[in-house]
Design a protein around this nucleic acid. Structure first.
Lengths: 113, 113
DNA sequence: AAGTATAATCGTATATTTGCGATATAAAAT
DNA sequence: ATTTTATATCGCAAATATACGATTATACTT
């Protein structure tokens, strides 16, 4: 982009957009699903379940960790990742904002188009 | 990216990621907020409320329309945009999937890290 | 008919994301 | 001590996303 206008938006809009971006890739959705099911938390096993190289998966894990949706601990030779449900549920509830706005505008049904 | 592995993921994972991508930009969050509040539905007024050029806003509106989150109709000289609540609510409920998976794994609390 | 206003689209520059091989790091196994 | 195993990080190439001026299309206005 010629100019980065990101910072000219409201802080909460930026925060929500960043969280959405974190889950805007099928690999990261797939990772979250695996972790939610507790199918596994070990990096190597996650790699096996995805059509991506180890380096790429590690990068996706890092992104999810940076935004806070998952947390990871090193367990000897391997590392263990888990969903941070507090952050995750908070994220989901952010979407409620839209529904609330709509109710305040008393619409949902009678939209203008 | 060297190779596009997107299509090697499950269809529902791709769909959810695409929806998340649609709201992964503060401008698009801001647009959805304006529409939810029914502050306005006219393109020109939306442009006024954002720190972006008309061409850029039009492009963001198009993305939201392509994914189905909003619908637009031409009203004479101006165009009118509205949130498609059916799609929107469906999208939100998709996130419930994670919570369900977690409950099936009967965890949320006792994570491994 | 000519001018004006609204919004979509095109073309293009720049920024960011994605993907991976190669390499680094660190613990476990030999 | 050396080798193996598990992950993270670096550096680069290719794909996408972002932003906007210029242009186009369409419908109101006069």
């Amino acid at each position: 982009m010629a100019i980065n206008r990101k910072m000219e938006f409201a802080a909460d809009e930026i925060a929500l957009a960043d969280l959405a971006k974190a889950i805007s890739h099928p690999a990261r959705i797939a990772i979250l699903k695996i972790l939610a099911q507790q199918k596994s938390c070990i990096c190597g096993e996650i790699v096996e379940g995805l059509p991506l190289a180890q380096a790429t998966v590690s990068q996706h894990l890092k992104e999810l960790k940076t935004i806070g949706l998952i947390k990871g601990t090193i367990e000897g030779k391997t590392s263990c990742y888990c969903i941070d449900w507090e952050v995750f549920n908070q994220f989901i509830s952010h979407f409620g904002v839209f529904a609330e706005l709509a109710q305040n505008a008393s619409t949902q049904s009678q939209s203008c188009c």
